[in-house]
Design a protein around this nucleic acid. Sequence first.
DNA 1: CGAAGACTTGATTCTAGTCAACTCCCGTGG
DNA 2: CCACGGGAGTTGACTAGAATCAAGTCTTCG
Lengths: 214, 214
Amino acid sequence: MTLAYAPDAPLATPAIAQVMERLGLRMNFAKDEEIFCQDEEADLLYIVVTGAVRTTRLLSDGRRQVGSFYYPGDLVGLETGDLHRFSAEALCDCTLLVVKRSAVKTFAGDEDLDRALWQATRRELERTQEHLLVLGRKTACEKVASFLMDLAQRDRSEQVALPMGRQDMADYLGLTIETVSRMLTQLQGASVVEFDGCRRFRVTRWDALERLAE
Amino acid sequence: MTLAYAPDAPLATPAIAQVMERLGLRMNFAKDEEIFCQDEEADLLYIVVTGAVRTTRLLSDGRRQVGSFYYPGDLVGLETGDLHRFSAEALCDCTLLVVKRSAVKTFAGDEDLDRALWQATRRELERTQEHLLVLGRKTACEKVASFLMDLAQRDRSEQVALPMGRQDMADYLGLTIETVSRMLTQLQGASVVEFDGCRRFRVTRWDALERLAE
DNA sequence: CGAAGACTTGATTCTAGTCAACTCCCGTGG
DNA sequence: CCACGGGAGTTGACTAGAATCAAGTCTTCG
């Protein structure tokens, strides 16, 4: 069954982007630089302008879960009440628009903005629910296939870039790097995808990928 | 590390409950009756009055993921854009308050209501993120332990009721019923919890349960 | 060119899944 | 009230899939 779910639609609407442009500050982050930290107060809201961001959460013994990846146009920092429940880090050098929540709040009367932020929160929830299904009920191969599928759908060009390393993929999918690597090799062996170096691939058989992603 | 996370706080605020009381309809559902269906249009919003509800999502081959359980005071049906991404079913005979989204929309000017609904969506997102962590990075034992912990925190009485069967627990935790059963036996063997029949338990060692839940 | 880090591959282990039998409830009807 | 039956839950033996441990190889970058 198919769901009306567009993983590639950006989270920020024009209404939000406009306000953030007006009130916000452009900031650059280096690869792996921390944008905000788990358990820190959630003061700011971000839009990715260029580059990509990951959110992560650590268990006390060091196990890590990647919550999500964010690309240009995505709102980051919604995933939260008063405290950040995840950390956010730059996946590569990137530029973000940053704005104080309190500054956004002075626009509270602005119905469009409120509605847009709520809408964005709902879309974030939808993404998280898709992710839940992947973690709970898919095999390693299905996880990796659906991950590549999501990326390829977002970036419709022939060559799809993987902005994250194997460890990030593994921690996103609830696997180890070795298992991710093996599944990638397997998908290549089945001529479903074709890698050109380890950070760039091409889907050679969409139907097969779709079927494997379940 | 501890997070300011209260899994037992109901999702509906007084502002929402008040409007729903005014505009809503009380409906009864029998055990296992469908409340709404995956891929159906999302017209209605629900508050659990008595009983409990589960949301589920099916993969084409029959694998099932339980999205969440809802108890009295919880809002159900937020988890959605225009189409329901999950089905909802009564876990036991239960009563819900039902209201049309469009009816709520006529109160759009009501800032409190809008804010409360957004807030509720954010709390739903938080719950989903906690669930994500459990599915992605915890072992079978930790999954079961943290599940029992959540239940026990919600229902602070000595004897905690399990309103769901083993299959629902398994599909919520991404396990099989056999594994859930084994882990429950194990936790009992370690004198962490004590079962009185298979639908009722008591936490005998909170510290141990907390440690096992990670 | 050399070194460090990222990725892949192989051998082995271990956790959770599968399949099958068994037990315990619990409700029903004699 | 007890016997029976069926569904839910538990337990055991075995298997499969992913994790772990340990080399390797490929990249990238100074």
